[in-house]
Every structure is written in structure tokens, then in C-alpha cells.
Design a protein around this nucleic acid. Structure first.
Lengths: 196, 196
DNA sequence: GAGCAAGGAAACAGATCTGTTTCCCCATGG
DNA sequence: CCATGGGGAAACAGATCTGTTTCCTTGCTC
């Protein structure tokens, strides 16, 4: 068990964000009360509110941290396992499969956040849009590096497959959608390269 | 304004489901209190609880009604606008575009429900899985009627595109994803037919 | 007109929510 | 040894949540 009281303030902040993120992902945002978060994190309410002005600010911090952490982890995974640029494109969906099979996978936290806060909190909605834009930019970079004919069009299509696989994995509770997406991606990719 | 008090009991039930569904879709499930629902529906709390044992039961009723209503509406739209069986496959995404452009579009209510209740309420999760299975079955039927080579595989792929477009439209607030999905679908479909 | 049933309005109960404040402990530095 | 300050525990405030109950009005039927 992590002893939060032994940590310096900066780490305690990270620890809170980590804990809150896990609970938000698993149970949802409204369903996760502040009391549950501080209990799980082993921290007092006073400490939480010394780091975050409100629950909304904590949610935003969770989303920001998760944004960069997930993208780092995911991009590294894709870049490492793909030999050439083109195989990295299908590698997107191998990385997705790994993600879906992680024990703490409850779908994309940004999509869930939009479902709960799209109308109530524009900043939260913006954070989610930012994430999707960054992911799309990463896919686009891969498409360019692979030399696709219309990289923008291909990136949009692959991003759709990725979203679809994520949601389907969340609802079904199975990672099988990743394989379907990969198969579809292969077909789409081969259409976006001039005949060698 | 609909005068709820003038309606027979059966219609009042429908009216409550309709109203609750609109609020759930727009603001989320936890964020929509019973008080807001009865205020908007013009009905007393006593009446609501005479029709539904609990909020969860109301949510389940909303999901069940929305399931059949949406599928009816959507299937009719697809069947009507597609001349031949194959054009009905791409027509899926024309219907999606229409859906995304409706004023009250806030994404797929089932996906949002899973985000909020996957862990807390197995019945709600089941209702969402049922919906996704029915949609997949409809797409599969279209694939078979069109004479696709591997209808199951194609149906899975098109369903992924459909999910991806829905989520992307929700997060971005634009219906553009429907066109991207249609373009990708055309490529996938052409691969699933033996060369004429 | 009398009786009856449905439903609205609103009080109520009890839990839970976010966020603030108080009090106390304890470690650290002079 | 003492002062200071960070943080835990918990009370507190005030709002809001689900769900129940009470009381009253209204309209329908006999």
C-alpha cells in the first residue's frame, strides 16, 4: 500500500491524480465522490483541496495527465514494435489490443467525460477534443512517414476505426474488436498506396 | 406545451420516458435528477414513482424504448433511401449523417450509459450490449442481402466504422465523420465482393 | 349530490454530495 | 526547548439526491 503521508507534496499531487483517474475510469465521474477518492488515496480532504480548487479542476488535471501519459505509452509501443513505417500503421491496432487487454481498461476516459460533461463543462469537453486531435495528429504523422497517397484521408479513416474499436471493446468487454479493426485497416491502407 | 395531466396513464408513461431520455442524453444520467425530470415532464414525483420503481428502472425503460425506436427509425431510413442491397450498405452512413445533424444529437446514449453504469448496473450494461448486437445484426442482414463474400467479417468492420463515426461526431460536434466513414466503407465493401 | 380514485404540491426522511473550518498531532529548524 | 507549519481526522454547512408520505383538489360515476 502506498503511504501517501510519506510523500513530498508534488508526488502527493500525482498520487491523487492517479487514484482519482482510476476511480473515474472505473465508476464514472459523477458516481465517484471526493470522499471515495481521499479514502482510496490515503489523504485528507484538506490536502486534496489544497492541490485542487474543485472537483472539476481535479478532473481536468486527471485528463491532462492521462492525455500525455497515455499518448507517450501508446506511441512508444507503436514505434517500438513496428519495423518499417507502414507496419507501424497496422501496429496501431496491435497496441490497441494490448490496451484493451489491460486489467484496468474501461474504455476511453475522454469519451466517458464527454458523455457526462459535454454540456456542463466546456473546459472538460475541450480537453477531450484536444486528446482526439493529438491522436489524430500522431496517426497522420505515421501515414506521412509511410508515404501514403492521401495521408489526411487515411488518417481520418484509421482514427475512425480506432475509436470504433475502443468503444466496441468497452461495451463488449472483449478485445476482439482490435483484430477486426486491424483487418479493416489493412484493406484501407493498401488502397492508399500507389501500386508499387 | 404538452399538458401531461390531460393524458391517459399509458401515454404519461411514454411522455416520462421521452422527457427523461432527452435529459439523460443531453446532461448525463447521474447529472439528471428526478426533480428535473418531473419538472420538465410536468408530472408529480408520485406519478413518476407509480410508473417506475426506481431511477434505475426508469433508465432501463428509457434504454429499451430508445433501442426499438431508434432502430425502427434508422432501419426505415436506410431501407427507404437505398435502391439496391449494396447501396444500402453505404446508405448506413448517409443515415448516420442525418442522425448526427439532428438538433438533439449528443452521441449514442448507450455508450454514455456504459460509461456511467458498466460497473454499477449489469442490467444497464446488458441493455447497451443488446442494442449493439441488434445493430450489428441489421448490418449483417444488409451484407447478406448484398451478397458479400464474407458477410460476418464485413458487418464487423462496418459496425466499427459506425461506432467510430458516432463517437467522433459526438466529441467533435460535427457530422463530418459520417462522410469519412462512408468513404472508408466503400473501400471495405468493394473488397468484399468477388470481381464481377 | 355522494363516493371514489387519480394525481398534483409539498413536506419529509435519510443519505450523500462538495467544499470549509476547526482542532490536534508531530516533525523539523532555530 | 520552543515555535512553526503541514497535514490528518472530523465536524460542519448547505445543497442536492432518491424515494415516501401526507394532504388536498378535481373530475368521474352512480
Amino acid at each position: 500500500m502506498t503511504r501517501a503521508s510519506d510523500l513530498p507534496a508534488a508526488s502527493r499531487r500525482d498520487h491523487l491524480i492517479q487514484t482519482a483517474g482510476r476511480l473515474f475510469a472505473r465508476d464514472g465521474f459523477h458516481a465517484t465522490g471526493i470522499d471515495k477518492i481521499i479514502l482510496e488515496a490515503g489523504v485528507s480532504k484538506k490536502t486534496l483541496y489544497s492541490h485542487f480548487r474543485s472537483k472539476e479542476e481535479l478532473i481536468l488535471a486527471v485528463l491532462r495527465v492521462h492525455d500525455s501519459a497515455f499518448r507517450n505509452h501508446f506511441m512508444r509501443n507503436v514505434e517500438k514494435n513496428g519495423r518499417d513505417a507502414r507496419s507501424r500503421l497496422t501496429g496501431l491496432f496491435d497496441a490497441a489490443e494490448n490496451w484493451f487487454e489491460e486489467p484496468g481498461f474501461y474504455g476511453c476516459i475522454f469519451i466517458n467525460a464527454v458523455g457526462e460533461y459535454a454540456q456542463a463543462s466546456p473546459p472538460i469537453r475541450s480537453a477531450c477534443q484536444d486528446f482526439k486531435n493529438m491522436m489524430r495528429a500522431f496517426i497522420l504523422k505515421l501515414c506521412r512517414e509511410a508515404g501514403a497517397d492521401e495521408p489526411e484521408a487515411l488518417a481520418d479513416e484509421l482514427a475512425l476505426l480506432f475509436e470504433g474499436a475502443t468503444v466496441t471493446a468497452q461495451v463488449s468487454g472483449s478485445s476482439h474488436a482490435a483484430r477486426t479493426a486491424k483487418r479493416a485497416a489493412q484493406a484501407l491502407i493498401s488502397e492508399h498506396f500507389s501500386p508499387a
